[in-house]
């Protein structure tokens, strides 16, 4: 057994022991365009997994399926062992009721490329809105936690600001704080720095590095920042045409990939 196989095997064992996310035979079609066909993969609890691959390979679709922003055409997704939108019942595929879906979805948070802060609210209000109205926290409790999170993302003094008064990088850090305020077990990050001016990328990535270092939150990351991916990931999945064509530890993936298409892709982006 090569060291390569050993590490992969242990990673698989780890994720099987405590599966945070399972994709089982996942199919996603838009009309008659099949984006994902029988996709299978696991993400362990607390694992940081980065998805890379060419444009159109289905990375965003995977995150959006997890966030229930897209309808699952076929197969199953499990979060912490719970079926997310569909379950097997007597060998049949059954769609879950919206209430049940909402329960499981609460474990997941997402940060979008375009920040999507609520323009009708201040920074503080953006963060406390869902904890108060979804988790039922008191206003004081929610504000306390929000202040803590704002400090964490380096915006402790901007709680009263309006989103339009912040730079893109600051807005994105607020969006991260807003997602974290829901205490998700899993956070989905879809190209969160792609809409930012280059000089603002660093601050956002540092917040995420810090998050990776200080919490055991499961992270599913889509990014073009390969250094960042290498630093925070436990595992990197290379996608092409909706399939995983390589699954490796970051040092292996970025220095010595085995798949020809991975090599080609990395040559183009690095």
């Amino acid at each position: 057994m090569s060291t390569d196989e050993t590490t992969q095997a242990s990673a698989a064992q780890q994720s099987e022991a405590s599966p945070g996310i399972i994709f089982e035979g996942v199919v996603k079609r838009f009309g008659d365009h099949t984006v994902l066909n029988e996709l299978n993969f696991h993400v362990g609890k607390g694992e940081r997994v980065t998805l890379i691959g060419p444009s159109g390979s289905g990375k965003t679709t995977i995150l959006r399926l997890l966030m229930t922003l897209e309808h699952l055409t076929g197969g199953y997704i499990y979060v912490d062992g719970e079926p997310l939108t569909h379950k097997k019942e007597n060998g049949k595929r059954v769609e879950l009721r919206a209430k049940q879906v909402a329960q499981t979805r609460k474990r997941i948070g997402m940060v979008f490329q375009q920040f999507n802060l609520f323009p009708n609210m201040s920074v503080m209000e953006n963060i406390i809105e869902a904890p108060i109205h979804v988790l039922g926290k008191s206003k004081e409790e929610a504000r306390g936690r929000a202040q803590q999170l704002l400090d964490q993302v380096g915006l402790g003094d901007r709680g009263d600001a309006h989103p339009t008064q912040l730079s893109g990088g600051q807005q994105q850090r607020v969006a991260i704080a807003r997602a974290l305020a829901m205490d998700p077990e899993i956070i989905l990050l879809d190209e969160v720095t792609s809409a930012l001016d280059p000089e603002l990328v660093g601050d956002v990535l540092n917040v995420l590095r810090d998050l990776a270092a200080t919490t055991d939150i499961t992270m599913l990351i889509v990014t073009h920042e390969m250094q960042f991916a290498q630093d925070v990931s436990d595992r990197v999945l290379m996608f092409d045409g909706g399939k995983i064509i390589e699954d490796a530890k970051p040092d292996v993936m970025f220095s010595n990939p085995s798949n020809e298409r991975t090599k080609e892709f990395l040559r183009a982006v690095l």
């Binding site: 966030m67 922003l69 979008f112 999507n116 109205h133 979804v134 997602a179 829901m182």
Partner: peptide, 27 residues
Amino acid sequence: VPKGQWETTTALSMPWLTKMRRIIWPQ
């Protein structure tokens, strides 16, 4: 109202009434 606003309310698990009353309607 931008699609991203609707999607964010889903990502924050807001129930329909909360989403409409607090986020979508004011916009």
